[in-house]
Nucleic acid binder design. Structure first.
Lengths: 261, 261
DNA sequence: CGAGCAATTGAACGCTGTCAACCCGAGTGG
DNA sequence: CCACTCGGGTTGACAGCGTTCAATTGCTCG
């Protein structure tokens, strides 16, 4: 069990660029409570204690595989730090990222063994893991957990359908604009015409795989937007939104492009 | 409540091209049992009787809206006959079909009011409807129902992610091939190199909206495949798969196209 | 300093969308 | 019964967006 994940899982004492290291369960519990994670927040005290007791922290390096595609997976996990990517690969190698998991996010399924997406670390990441069978046992005692998971999966389904619309009908410019706006939304509410700084936590390659295009197209569109004074490129991962109105317009329409800015 | 759906719902005595008409609850129950629908099959006798008691049949004409996008929906439904389409629309009118519902399929959500997709009748259709609150009350007594719904939504999510991969990475030829093969799979197992007949239950327009392309491209690719003796076009809705191997190859690869058939 | 990778930029090709004309079957009305 | 209309589907010509291939830059790490 945990075939692939054991192979790549890092459980070091104090390795690499880890800024701080906490005792396993303590770190886990604190983080989950802090970030309103879907697994262990707002539960009764008993359920929460149970979760903390069986949870374990794992650390992954950027690029490592947490779960392979079509692999049986026997645990669930909360992202504590870093970014994970959910991706699918075609037989000939083409691949598509179907979602990113950022810190409070949750992955894993109950009553279903096989994962149909690969889960990989897009950056160095920390994940709080819980055995699936242990979680299922917990569900038997706290039905609230299953309800919680259903709502979570429904959200995921909504997001997937939104993304299908975007991938199938929108141009690359629109997709990039939407991506930037979504990032900005994550950071916080956008103030009217106030410059907003955003951090892209993934590489151009991952951006391209998520947006269903190529790194070259991503780069071109970003520079186009920079030339049109819609955004300012600080460095490859950091941008400032100069003209938010134009970005919003760009994300849903097209045709007039950048001319009228 | 049921704002839009009441406006368009047809509850006729004996209208149009209906081939047979059964008493409401009887029809409902029989159909569900026959088709292994996710709502009322394999339940205990008591739960099943309850479901039958509160379920009602509705009939829709092709093109009618069952649920509008972003509308509150207070019922769940099984498709008994016909085809429904789940679709999303962009502000400027571009739209994408994110899924079809064929007879044993199920739609609707519990504990969530708003639907984020529009549900429309792609053909004349019969739907077996259950009030959401009644269903939720039933869930309180038969937790099995919630479990069932979770598994169903997980399947939908898988399908959505598969389709994201297809939309984002595959060519129109590959998408059409995949679509035909999926239809064939629905019909039954494909025998090796045995001709298989398939029926496309929707219009070219809906095919295009589902495959993220245009009617013109669909038409071209179908005729290409016909010229290459991969399929035979009987009429606009009926095809015969002549070279299944080629179709499978086409659905996942590309590049060599039809030259080597 | 050089190797290696990520990102950018340039040029050219090709898939696919757009626009247009045409065909065809169904429904309608004279 | 036929002419007409209308909508769905097919086919053709063409252009544009975005991919592909290729070269360059810049940064990090050893």
């Amino acid at each position: 069990m945990m075939r692939a994940s054991k192979a790549v899982c890092i459980i070091p004492a104090n390795e690499g660029r880890m800024e701080s290291y906490h005792p396993v369960t303590a770190l886990d519990n604190e983080k989950c409570a802090d970030h309103h994670c879907s697994a262990c927040v707002e539960l009764g005290a008993i359920a929460q204690q149970e979760l903390v007791r069986i949870a374990r922290v794992r650390r992954y390096r950027a690029g490592e595989t947490i779960v392979a595609e079509a692999e049986d997976i026997d645990f669930l996990g909360n992202v504590v730090s870093g970014v994970l990517r959910l991706q699918k690969t075609l037989h000939d190698g083409r691949q598509q990222i179907v979602g990113f998991l950022l810190p409070p996010d949750f992955f894993g399924r109950i009553f279903v063994k096989k994962s149909n997406v690969a889960i990989e670390a897009a950056t160095d990441a920390t994940v709080c893991c819980i055995s699936r069978v242990a979680y299922e046992r917990l569900i038997a005692r706290f039905p609230e957990l299953e309800h919680r998971m259903l709502v979570n999966v429904l959200r995921e389904l909504d997001a997937a359908q939104d993304w299908m619309l975007l991938l199938a009908t929108q141009s690359v410019s629109e997709r990039v604009a939407t991506f930037l706006l979504n990032l900005a939304k994550r950071v916080g509410v956008i103030h009217n015409s106030a410059p907003t700084n955003i951090t892209v936590p993934v590489s151009r390659r991952d951006m391209a795989a998520y947006l269903g295009t190529t790194v070259e197209s991503i780069s071109r569109k970003l520079q186009e937007m920079a030339r049109a004074r819609i955004i300012r490129v600080i460095d490859a991962q950091h941008f400032e939104i100069i003209n938010e109105k134009a970005l919003v317009a760009l994300s849903q329409h097209n045709g007039e492009e950048f001319d009228h800015v």
